[in-house]
Design a protein around this nucleic acid. Structure first.
Length: 823
RNA sequence: GCCGGAGUGGCGGAAUUGGUAGACGCAAGGGACUUAAAAUCCCUCGGGGCUUAACUCCGUGCCGGUUCAAAUCCGGCCUUCGGCACCA
C-alpha cells in the first residue's frame, strides 16, 4: 500500500478491472429482482459538463447501491446523436456531422469511463445509426396506419436561426428552446403525430405517476389543459351559414353582446367582401397586450334569446383552439370587457354574487360599460336569463347544456390545450421520414421491408432554409413503391425528440433485429424503476415518451402503460449564483478536476454539497474538503494497516463485555449503517448519508484500541465504512477493501444490515425544560418510566432554582426525550 | 395575473416530521509541528450582555394564531426562483 493517496493510479486500476470482469453487464435473469436505473442520455456535444457529471453520478450511486442489495440492475448509456449542433459544426467548419458526432461520442465515452460510471456497455445505443433510426421510421409507418401520423398545412413555429420548424413544447417564451431566438409563425405542410388522441389517457394516467415530483405532474396536467364546455351554434343573420362557438361558461349565454372570431376563421373569407374591412383585419396587431378588433358588418343570432349581435374579428381569438370563434360576454370575461370598453359595446350582467341576489342589475336589462370597472368572472347566481334565472352557475351550466342538446342547438365537448406534435424538421441530421410523393398515387409510405431509408452521406450543408435532402437528387428522386413511376421522397427529417421517446425500450434489447424491441426483454426490464434527469424536460421529452409508450402498447409490443415509475429531477449546477455556461465564463471542467483530485473526490463533493433535487452551488474549496476527507481515510488506513487487515471475520463480543469506548464505536457503526441506508432509501439524500459517514470516521480516528476486542470493533467499523462509502467513492473503496484483506470485488459485497438492539442508545440525554425553556440536561438510562424521569428532572439543582416555590401546573414527559415543567 | 417550490450562522446545508435549532462540511480566528511555507494535527466559531467563565436574554423572511412546546401546523403579508399565460 502506498503511503500517499494516489487517486489516478487506483482509479485507472479499478476501472480496468470492472471492465474486464464485466461487472455491470446484465441479462434477463428472472431468478433475481430487477432494477432499471436510467439517466437521460446526452447529446454528444463534444465534452461532458458538470450537469452531466452530477446526473450520471447520482445514477451510478443508485446502481451500485441497488446492486449490493441483490438487484439485477440494468444501467445503460447511449447517445442522443441526431441534432442541430452537428449540422452547424458542419456548416461552420466543413466537418461532416457524422464524423463530428462519432468523434464526440468517442471522447465523451472516455470521459464517462474516467468518472467510474458502471454501465452495461453491450447495450449502448446511438440514435444516428441506421440500426436505430430505422425503427423511428417503422414507428412512423405504424402510426400512419393507425391514423396517428398525418400531414397538414398549418401555421407552425419557425426558428429563423435553426431554420426549422419547432413543436409547441419546444417554444419557450416565444423563443427557440435550443438557440433562444424569437420564433416566427410560418405556414407550412408538416407531418404531425396525433398526441391529442391520447390527451385524455395522458391526463388520467398522470394520477398514477406517484413516484414523480408533483411539480412535473402538475406541469404536464397544465400543458394538456383539459376543459369541459359546450359548442353552441349561432346563425349568421341574413345567411344560412351557422357559426359554432366553444365556451366553458354557458351559464353566461344570456349575457353575450357580441361575437369574436379569429383572423383566420373561414367565415372571414366566406362573408367579408369589403376590401377595406379585409385590409383592416389583415393589419390587426399580434400584440397580446392590446386587444383589437374589426366589425365584419355581419350579425349573429343568439339561439337562446334570438338577439342579433355583431360579429367582430378579434386579435386575441385563436383559430387553433376550440372552434376559432367565441361568444363575447363582457360582463363576465375580462378580455371581452376590455374589448367592449374599447369599441363601446353593450355589457349585460347575467351573473350576480349570491349576496347581491334580488338586487337589480346595473341599468335594469342592459347597461353600458359605465358603472362597471371589471368583469365579474366568478360563479354566482343567474339573472335575466329566462327560465334559468336564479340558478347557481354550476347548476345552470348543466341545465343549459341539457337544453341545448335537447333542442339540437349545441353539444357538450371537451377541449385540450395540447396540440398535435409537429415532427417535420427542415434539416439534414435526423431520421428521414419514410414517405414518397407520387404524382399518380399521392402520398405513399415506404414499405416496411425497404427500411431503413438511409440518410445519404453527401449532403450540401449551407444552411439556406430548405431541407438539405431536397437538394440531393439521388436521394430525393425515387420510384413510387406502388406504381414504380417517378416519384419524390419526403426530404424533411424527424424531430430528434422522436429518437429519445423510446430509447429506454431499446436498451432492453438493443440488438433486436425483427422488431424495435424484444417483448420478453421489455416485459422483464420495464418500467424504468428510477429515471434521473433535468427538470427542463418536464413536458417535452417526458410527455413524448409517455405518448410513445402508450402507442407502442397499442401496437402490441409491450404491456406497460407508463415508462417511468420514479423520476428524480436533479437541480442545476450553479457557480457564482448562475448556471454554468460558456458565455458567463463560470464553467468548471470535469476533466481538470478528475485529473487533479480523481473522480472519487468529484463524486463525493457532488453528492455531499446538496440533496440531488436542489441546485448545487459549486465550491472549489468544497472539492478540497472532499479530497481531504478521502485523504484522511487513506492515511488512517495506511498508518494502521496491520491492525486493520484481517483475513477472516472477527467474532465480536456482546455489548456488555466490551469496553465502553468500544461499545460506543460499535453502536455508532450500527447507527451509521442505519442512517446511510435510510438516507438513500427515503429520498436519495446522499448529502446526509455522507455526513454520517464523516461522523463515523471522526469517531474511528479518535478511537485508540487497547486489546483484541477493541481492535475487532475497530475493524468492524472500518470494514462497514468502506462498504457504505463504496457507491459514492467506488475506487478508493475497492482499493481499501482489498488492502484490508478482502478478496472479491466490493461490488459483490452485500449491503450491510444493522442490529436495532445495538444501534439503540443505552443512555439518553434527557432535556429538562421549565415553561418550554431549556434549563438542564441529564444522562438517564433509556426506557426509564415516566415517574422516574420526573424524579430525575426535579432533582436537578438548576431546575429547582427555576421552580423555587411556584406551583406546578403541569408536567409533560416525552418518552426518552424531554420533560417540560409548566409552572 | 394564475399555479408550484424556496427563505435557517460568513457560506453549502442538518434537524428522527411538533420535542435540545445549527449535525456534517467550507470559510475564518488561535495554537502545535517547521529555519520558513505548504500539508497535517489540536482548539474556538449564530448574536447580545459580561475581561473570562458560570449564567442569562435574543434568534429559523415579517406579523399574528394554535400548543406545555413551532424552523416544522394554521391565517395574512414580503422576497425570491421556476412553470403557464389571451386556451374562451
Amino acid at each position: 500500500m502506498e503511503e500517499r493517496y494516489n487517486a489516478q493510479n487506483i482509479e485507472k486500476k479499478w476501472q480496468e478491472y470492472w471492465d474486464k470482469e464485466n461487472l455491470f453487464t446484465v441479462t434477463e435473469n428472472t431468478a433475481l429482482p430487477k432494477f432499471y436505473c436510467l439517466e437521460m442520455f446526452p447529446y454528444p456535444s463534444g465534452r461532458i459538463h458538470m450537469g452531466h457529471v452530477r446526473n450520471y453520478v447520482i445514477g451510478d450511486v443508485i446502481t451500485r447501491y441497488k446492486k449490493m442489495h441483490g438487484f439485477n440492475v440494468l444501467h445503460p448509456m447511449g447517445w442522443d446523436a441526431f441534432g442541430l449542433p452537428a449540422e452547424n459544426a458542419a456548416i461552420k467548419r466543413g466537418v461532416h456531422p457524422s464524423k463530428w458526432t462519432y468523434e464526440n461520442i468517442d471522447y465523451m465515452k472516455s470521459q464517462l469511463k474516467k468518472l467510474g460510471l458502471g454501465y452495461d456497455r453491450e447495450r449502448e445505443v446511438t440514435t444516428c445509426a441506421p440500426e436505430y433510426y430505422r425503427w423511428n421510421q417503422w414507428f412512423f409507418l405504424k402510426m400512419l396506419e393507425r391514423g396517428l401520423a398525418y400531414k397538414k398545412s398549418s401555421y407552425v413555429n419557425w426558428c429563423p436561426s435553426c431554420e426549422t420548424v419547432l413543436a409547441n413544447e419546444q417554444v419557450i417564451d416565444d423563443k427557440c428552446w435550443r438557440c433562444d431566438n424569437i420564433v416566427a409563425q410560418k405556414e407550412l405542410e408538416q407531418w404531425f403525430f396525433k398526441i391529442t388522441a391520447y390527451a385524455e389517457e395522458l391526463l388520467r394516467d398522470a394520477d398514477t405517476l406517484t413516484g414523480w415530483p408533483e411539480k412535473v405532474v402538475t406541469m404536464q396536467r397544465n400543458w394538456i389543459g383539459r376543459s369541459e364546455g359546450v359548442e353552441v351554434d349561432f346563425r349568421v343573420t341574413g345567411s344560412d351559414r351557422g357559426m359554432r362557438i366553444f365556451t366553458t361558461r354557458h351559464d353566461t349565454l344570456y349575457g353575450a353582446t357580441f361575437m369574436s372570431i379569429a383572423k383566420k376563421h373561414p367565415l372571414v373569407a366566406e362573408l367579408v367582401k369589403d376590401e377595406n374591412i379585409l385590409k383592416e383585419i389583415e393589419s390587426l396587431s399580434d400584440d397580446p397586450e392590446e386587444k383589437e378588433g374589426v366589425f365584419t358588418g355581419f350579425h349573429a343570432e343568439n339561439p337562446l334569446t334570438g338577439d342579433k349581435i355583431p360579429i367582430y374579428v378579434a386579435n386575441f381569438v385563436l383559430m387553433e383552439y376550440g372552434t376559432g370563434a367565441i361568444m363575447a360576454v363582457p360582463a363576465h370575461d375580462q378580455r371581452d370587457f376590455e374589448f367592449a370598453k374599447k369599441y363601446n359595446l353593450p355589457v349585460k350582467t347575467v351573473i350576480q354574487k349570491p349576496e347581491d341576489r334580488g338586487q337589480s342589475t346595473v341599468n335594469g336589462q342592459r347597461s353600458t360599460v359605465n358603472g362597471i370597472t371589471e368583469a365579474f368572472e366568478e360563479d354566482g347566481v343567474l339573472v335575466d336569463s329566462a327560465q334559468f334565472s336564479n340558478l347557481p352557475s354550476e347548476e345552470a351550466r348543466g341545465k343549459i347544456a341539457d337544453y341545448l342538446e335537447k333542442e339540437g342547438l349545441g353539444k357538450r365537448v371537451v377541449n385540450y390545450r395540447l396540440r398535435d406534435w409537429g415532427i417535420s424538421r427542415q434539416r439534414y441530421w435526423g431520421t428521414p421520414i419514410p414517405i414518397v410523393y407520387c404524382p399518380s398515387c399521392g402520398i405513399v409510405p415506404v414499405p416496411e421491408k425497404e427500411l431503413p431509408v438511409v440518410l445519404p452521406q453527401d449532403a450540401l450543408l449551407a444552411g439556406k432554409g430548405v431541407s438539405p435532402l431536397s437538394e440531393i437528387n439521388e436521394f430525393a428522386m425515387t420510384k413510387c413503391p406502388e406504381c414504380n413511376g417517378d416519384a419524390k421522397r419526403e426530404t424533411d427529417t424527424m424531430d430528434t425528440f422522436v429518437d429519445s421517446s423510446w430509447y429506454f425500450l431499446r436498451y432492453c434489447s438493443p440488438k433486436a433485429e425483427d422488431n424495435p424491441v424484444d417483448p420478453d426483454a421489455v416485459e422483464y426490464w420495464m418500467p424504468v424503476d428510477q429515471y434521473i434527469g433535468g427538470i427542463e424536460h418536464a413536458v417535452l421529452h417526458l410527455l413524448y415518451s409517455r405518448f410513445f409508450t402508450k402507442v407502442i402498447r397499442d401496437i402490441g409490443l409491450i404491456k406497460i402503460n407508463e415508462p417511468f415509475s420514479s423520476l428524480l429531477t436533479q437541480g442545476m449546477v450553479i457557480k457564482d449564483g448562475a448556471k454554468m455556461s460558456k458565455s458567463k465564463g463560470n464553467v468548471v471542467d470535469p476533466d481538470f478536476l478528475v485529473n487533479k483530485y480523481g473522480t472519487d473526490t468529484v463524486r463525493i463533493f457532488c453528492m455531499f454539497a446538496a440533496p440531488p433535487e436542489r441546485d448545487l452551488e459549486w465550491s472549489d474549496q468544497g472539492v478540497e474538503g472532499a479530497y481531504r476527507f478521502l485523504n484522511r481515510i487513506w492515511t488512517y488506513i495506511y498508518k494502521n494497516h496491520d491492525l486493520l487487515s484481517s483475513k477472516g471475520h472477527d467474532r465480536l463480543k456482546d455489548l456488555p463485555q466490551l469496553s465502553s469506548r468500544a461499545s460506543q464505536l460499535l453502536r455508532k457503526t450500527h447507527q451509521t449503517i442505519k442512517k446511510v441506508t435510510n438516507s438513500i432509501e427515503r429520498d436519495y439524500h446522499f448529502n446526509t448519508a455522507i455526513a454520517s459517514l464523516m461522523e463515523l470516521f471522526n469517531d474511528i480516528s479518535a478511537f485508540k484500541p487497547t486489546g483484541d476486542d477493541d481492535a475487532a470493533v475497530l475493524r468492524f467499523g472500518i470494514r462497514n465504512m468502506i462498504v457504505l462509502i463504496s457507491p459514492f467513492a467506488p475506487h478508493i473503496a475497492e482499493d481499501l477493501w482489498r488492502e484490508t484483506g478482502r478478496g472479491k470485488s466490493i461490488l459483490n459485497e452485500p449491503w450491510p444490515g444493522w442490529d436495532e438492539n445495538i444501534a439503540k442508545e443505552e443512555e439518553i440525554e434527557l432535556v429538562i425544560q421549565v415553561n418550554g425553556k431549556l434549563r438542564g440536561k441529564v444522562m438517564i438510562p433509556a426506557g426509564l418510566e415516566d415517574e422516574a424521569i420526573k424524579e430525575k428532572a426535579f432533582s436537578e439543582p438548576k431546575v429547582k432554582e427555576h421552580i423555587k416555590d411556584k406551583t406546578l401546573k403541569k408536567v409533560i414527559v416525552v418518552k426518552s426525550r424531554l420533560v417540560n415543567i409548566v409552572i
